[in-house]
Amino acid sequence: MASNRRRALVTGASAGIGEAFARELARRGHDLVLTARRAERLEALATELRDRHGIEAIVAPLDLSRTDGPEALVGALEAQGLAIDVLINNAGYGVTGYLEEQPWATHAAFIQVLMTAPTELAYRLIPGMKARGYGRIVNVASLAGHVPGSAGHTLYAASKAYLIKFSQSLALEGKASGVHTTAVCPGFTYSEFHDVTGSRDLVSKMPGFMWMDAPTVARQGMDAVDAGKAVYVNGRVNQAIKAMFKLLPDGLALKMIERQGKRYRSGPHAG
């Protein structure tokens, strides 16, 4: 049955911040297209949100490390006549260890998921958004994109800094067409992220005031993109950290990251 509701595509929707965005969008009355690798989790979430909010939720399992993934996904949606009004580029993960310690294929897949796929999805969906005079794009970046990169997570901060700059450009390019883009930049957020990277025990040493919950990150992110903010840093603590590092000389900022990174890094380079 055709719907007049806005439709959102959420990547990495099976857990964490992606799942929280899906729940927030459903609460706001959006139809959903949910994509991630874990089909069972997507199906369970889609069923719950349909029953609870009366929206349409379509499951599209996909591994975005496939180079043909974004084109295939958008093509399938277009073939079904499903226009996307809201894009949540959330899919992501971390790769631990120094750059040369991982196979290049591991890094190539990381770059594909965290940088290439968000860029291509935006590229393929923006024309339709501009034609309809409405669009919202949220690129889930990180506080890490505002501070110097750390050893042992070589590409993570770099990928998030890319998303921030990319979002700023898209925000300017879409402003006159009703297409708002925001880089949402949370800090430490309760999710499965640290379990996947194997750093749960280490980051659990962080004080409680440093942490946020995923539903708050998603709600603030949607409010920020609706308000037309190109970059939004979640939480006052994270905003203060960003401001501090902006004022510090580069050399001092890098030394601070080096010292802190050793406290929360495991493996042969810890300590």
Rank of each mutant, 00 (worst) to 15 (best):
L125I: 01
S191I: 01
G178K: 09
N90P: 08
L42R: 01
G178P: 00
V59P: 08
E120T: 06
A91G: 07
N4Y: 04
A13H: 02
G271N: 12
G178Q: 03
A20V: 13
W104N: 05
L82F: 13
L121E: 04
G54V: 05
L82G: 04
V86C: 14
R50E: 15
Y156I: 10
R23K: 11
E120H: 01
P148H: 09
Y123C: 00
L248D: 13
L114Q: 15
Y123M: 08
P148E: 04
G54H: 00
E78K: 09
V179S: 05
A158D: 05
G97S: 09
G12D: 07
A117G: 07
L49T: 13
D213M: 06
T189Q: 01
Y190W: 12
T11I: 10
N238W: 07
H153D: 10
G81Y: 05
Y93I: 12
A79K: 13
T35F: 05
Q168R: 15
A122F: 02
D68E: 12
C185L: 03
L252S: 05
L252K: 06
G145N: 12
V33C: 07
Y123A: 08
F110Y: 15
P118A: 00
T11Q: 02
Q112H: 03
E24T: 07
M212V: 14
Q80N: 06
Y232A: 14
V10C: 07
E48C: 06
G16C: 12
M212D: 14
S14R: 00
I164A: 05
P103W: 04
L143N: 10
E258D: 15
G208D: 10
S3Q: 08
I241Y: 08
L202H: 03
Y232H: 15
P215G: 03
I17D: 10
F188E: 04
I17V: 15
E100R: 12
N234H: 13
S169M: 13
L34V: 00
T116Y: 00
L163V: 08
V138Q: 03
E24Y: 06
L34T: 02
T106C: 08
E101H: 11
L82W: 14
G94V: 01
A157V: 11
A122N: 08
V74H: 05
T154W: 10
A144E: 07
I137V: 15
E101K: 05
A131R: 14
Q112P: 09
G208S: 13
Y123I: 08
V59K: 02
K165R: 15
N90Q: 03
R219V: 10
M244R: 08
A183D: 03
V237P: 04
S266G: 15
M129E: 01
P127N: 02
Y190M: 13
T119D: 00
A26Q: 03
T197D: 15
A105P: 09
L170H: 13
M212I: 13
Q168I: 10
R41Y: 01
E258R: 12
V10Y: 04
